[in-house]
């Protein structure tokens, strides 16, 4: 029965492309909101197969999986292959919270030489490479909505935004792309 069901990507078909930047929806992925005290980091890192970052704005990436530091006891774990991340954590005995949020967020990929400028239309953080280098990630705001911003390359960012705010975020980025 499952294959009969159509998964409806909320940003399906959206695309904004200019000379300097491309704004496109990211592919579906599995996402985990992971919460754990210091004591649980080692075991959870092992279970997830990557070292959970401990520094603000830090990320860890291994292949198609990544963990983004969001707070001192909070990570957003992403897996492009759709792996059941909560399942991986189930065997960890140290107290923690692993909640599947795969459908809560939508990804928007912003790339190109003007990517930083496009994001600056709505994000008040300093995104210069010296301050927000490749690999940095942070929860922040974009215009009137909250996002998680991850710099995946010198000219590439991944924006994670709640599903119902994704139309706003995409529209703002597309508008900003016209001005970059």
């Amino acid at each position: 029965m499952a294959d009969a069901l159509v998964r409806a990507d909320v940003l399906a078909g959206r695309r904004a492309e200019t000379a300097g930047v491309s704004v496109v929806p990211g592919a579906p992925a599995s996402r985990l909101s992971l919460r754990a005290p210091q004591a649980g980091i080692a075991a959870l890192s092992k279970a997830l197969g990557l070292a959970l970052p401990k520094k603000p704005k830090g990320t860890a990436q291994d292949g198609t999986r990544a963990a983004l530091w969001l707070g001192p006891d909070e990570w957003l774990v992403l897996d492009a292959e759709g792996v059941d991340l909560a399942g991986l954590c189930a065997s960890v005995r140290t107290a923690h919270s692993a909640v599947d949020v795969s459908h809560r967020n939508v990804a928007i990929l912003v790339s190109g030489p003007a990517a930083e400028t496009v994001l600056a239309a709505g994000c008040p953080q300093d995104l210069a490479p010296a301050v927000f280098p490749v690999g940095a990630a942070s929860r922040t705001v974009l215009g009137k909505v909250e996002i998680v911003l991850w710099r995946t390359g010198a000219d590439a960012f991944r924006v994670e935004v709640w599903r119902s705010f994704s139309d706003y975020a995409f529209t703002l980025l597309a508008e900003a792309a016209r001005d970059a």
């Binding site: 909101s33 919460r35 006891d73 923690h96 919270s97 909640v99 599947d100 949020v101 795969s102 459908h103 809560r104 967020n105 709640w162 599903r163 119902s164």
Partner: peptide, 8 residues
């Protein structure tokens, strides 16, 4: 720990 799953 608390996690918003309103949109999940």
């Amino acid at each position: 720990w608390l996690t918003s799953v309103s949109e999940q």
